[in-house]
């Protein structure tokens, strides 16, 4: 695992939950917990493997909520500002205006980032209770720290963790899962950049936490209806792991403060 992007001091990597417990209890209000995703787990007919993933919340002081999310070598930093005053031109009379900005690692945001921004924004809009903050603005900034595949799902996970950290009212949580179908027709969850390049089709889904339904879908490459259904089923299975991780990490965090 490459750890060059964030100071190594803040990292806790654990394969066993007990080790994570010890380590997280030593970090004060910060939270970091890596899920041992490297272990193969067989659920039903298909196996769902995710790379090691981890998260750190409230690591920035200025934003109202912040989180960094790491999936393998892919790493995204998210910050949320708001509810704050809104520009008159963007004001919506019955709900808050959500703005999502994606900053690539190098250069300026391009058309691809715009389209990803749209996907993240509409997913957040669906889960946030925006009508509780009419005529106000919410800004979500996503900074790419390192891209090694499954970037859109990492954006979604980082966004959800940051929104949770900001304490914004939400109707449900959401997570992102990327699936790649390789040339043999095998489904790979959470692919690396190299696996993405070799794949025949690539799909990213956002899954909600209440009914495990598909909130967002973005695909590349051509695939059959059957393959799509398989990928959705695999993503729903993988989402269980991520939601369990959300739950564990929030529980760990608040068990110390309460």
């Amino acid at each position: 695992m490459q750890l060059s992007t964030i100071p190594p001091r803040s990292y806790v990597i654990s394969k066993s939950p007990s080790a994570a417990k010890q380590m997280t209890s030593s970090t004060l209000d910060r939270l970091l917990f890596l899920h041992g995703g490297g272990v193969m787990e067989v659920c039903g007919s298909s196996s769902v493997t995710l790379r090691e993933f981890g998260c750190e919340q409230s690591l920035l002081s200025r934003p109202d909520g912040s989180a960094s999310f790491i999936q393998g070598d892919t790493s995204v930093l998210a910050g949320v500002y708001g509810p704050a005053e809104v520009k008159v031109s963007k004001e919506i009379y019955d709900r808050a205006t959500l703005e999502v900005l994606i900053q690539p690692k190098v250069g300026l945001p391009s058309v691809r980032e715009r389209s990803q921004e749209q996907c993240v924004r509409e997913t957040c809009e669906a889960s946030l209770l925006l009508s509780l903050h009419p005529r106000s603005s919410l800004t979500l900034i996503l900074q790419v720290l390192h891209d090694d595949g499954s970037l859109l799902s990492c954006f979604l996970n980082a966004a959800c963790m940051a929104l949770m950290d900001a304490g914004l009212p939400m109707s449900c949580l959401f997570c992102g899962v990327t699936c790649a179908i390789d040339t043999d027709g095998q489904i790979i969850t959470d692919p690396t950049a190299a696996q993405e390049k070799e794949s025949r089709a690539l799909m990213t889904f956002a899954i909600d936490s209440t009914e495990r339904r598909v909130l967002m879908s973005s695909t590349k490459g051509s695939f059959s209806v059957h393959e799509l259904q398989q990928c959705i089923a695999v993503s729903q299975k993988a989402s269980e792991k991520i939601f369990q991780f959300y739950r564990d990490s929030v529980r760990r965090r608040y068990s110390k403060t309460l």
């Binding site: 749209q118 996907c119 993240v120 924004r121 509409e122 997913t123 957040c124 809009e125 669906a126 799909m203 956002a206 909600d208 009914e211 339904r213 598909v214 909130l215 967002m216 879908s217 973005s218 695909t219 590349k220 051509s222 695939f223 059959s224 209806v225 799509l228």
Partner: peptide
């Protein structure tokens, strides 16, 4: 064959 399933967000 499906070439794209684009759902930028919204209700599930």
């Amino acid at each position: 064959r499906l070439c794209s399933l684009h759902k930028p967000g919204g209700s599930s």
